[in-house]
Design a protein around this nucleic acid. Structure first.
Lengths: 212, 212
DNA sequence: TCATACATACAGACGTGAATGTTTGTAAAT
DNA sequence: ATTTACAAACATTCACGTCTGTATGTATGA
């Protein structure tokens, strides 16, 4: 049945994106045909080619929906721990981990990017987007780390850029490994503990650390 | 030209695997046709179907070649720091990072597994193998962490299993992010520093830590 | 206000190329 | 003489892009 009004067409578009998200995260990007997506959305390939130019354009639209709200993260962290920059970053990291597990939307996208997608030439825009997103976020965190170091909240010998890469890699790796086998460990429940493992080596203990 | 003797046939097989490693790590697993691999090896598809049943069988043979020598790692670490278990694990981690960067063979396999492969149903054996390999290695490291804790070389409140996942995720994430953009940071040069960032939070400082 | 014209939002059919698995052919080795 | 180690041809499937058809919505003008 053909959607007639603009609102109905928009709904079709949304259902196509939802279907694509589901099927991609299940069967992989290159292993999924446009026909499968159309079927999962209850339409035909004609609808896809009306709303999108091709598969890459569809993926692009898919990623447009998950523009991570960088500002939100900063504000949220700022509200909880205004003075302690490291605590802010820590909270952000925990939040990202929990989100990847608990929010089906983010989980699907993470699955696609980490496990169901080949970064090859014909989806190069996807890789570019992934990189830009990472670098944009990394630049922000790096600045905050640098500020924390300048405030004496972190040892001065630490390299902010390397430290940022370390944290990002840790978070990415945790999500990657958890998605590989979600039953191996409970990422949502252990998120804080895991982030603590990483951060407890960064802070200068204000008081001598006692044995266990 | 047809290889005639068994030795020549084995060489053809090796060249096919080498070609597959190259092309897969460049163009992705599902995006590479068997014809492309055959061409890269200087033969036709007939040769592939003679040596392997299908693409999956070829991949399987590819992974058989990189059986990580778990024992070697242990012995190597043991030789350097016989008493300090944590130092051993630290050395192993640095070695894995360096290897992923410097050894073309390991780098290609890492690229395939982390960036050029979709973990979907038809390559499920590949995912299984990846998981088993991880779990086997993780079980070993977990045991060593537990031993280190029992010796008092690490705080008792640490959970060995979670700690192992943390370290593995960190290493995986570093390789993942480095492969995403090898120019962003120099993983080989910074490997030790990066591993230090992780580990320095684990050791109980024997003496109170001084300010920077 | 109502008929006409055009645009929208798809469904369905068509042609094409590419990859796969299989089968057959063949020269050399055993 | 038969098996080995491939090359080359064949048949099939399948996904893609395009094109056409069509029912409905919307704008326009008298």
């Amino acid at each position: 049945m053909v959607r007639r009004t603009k609102e109905e067409a928009l709904e079709t578009r949304t259902q196509l994106l939802d279907a694509a998200e589901r099927v991609f995260s299940d069967k992989g990007v290159t292993n999924t045909s446009l026909n499968e997506i159309a079927e999962a959305a209850g339409v035909t390939r004609g609808a896809i080619y009306w709303h999108f130019r091709n598969k890459m354009d569809l993926i692009d639209a898919l990623m447009d929906r998950v523009r991570l709200p960088l500002e939100d993260l900063r504000e949220q962290a700022m509200a909880i721990a205004p003075d302690d920059i490291v605590a802010q970053i820590r909270i952000n990291a925990v939040h990202v981990l929990r989100q990847a597990v608990l929010d089906p939307h983010h989980r699907a996208i993470a699955t696609i990017l980490l496990h169901k997608c080949e970064y090859v030439d014909d989806v190069l825009p996807l890789k570019q987007r992934h990189l830009e997103s990472r670098n944009e976020c990394a630049a922000d965190v790096e600045q905050r780390f640098a500020y924390a170091i300048s405030l004496g909240q972190l040892p001065t010998q630490l390299n902010p850029r390397l430290l940022t890469m370390a944290l990002f890699s840790y978070v990415d790796g945790l999500i990657y490994n958890w998605l590989l086998d979600p039953d191996y460990f409970d990422l949502a429940a252990e998120a804080e503990t895991l982030i603590d493992i990483f951060f407890d080596g960064l802070r200068k203990p204000m008081t001598p650390v006692r044995g266990n």
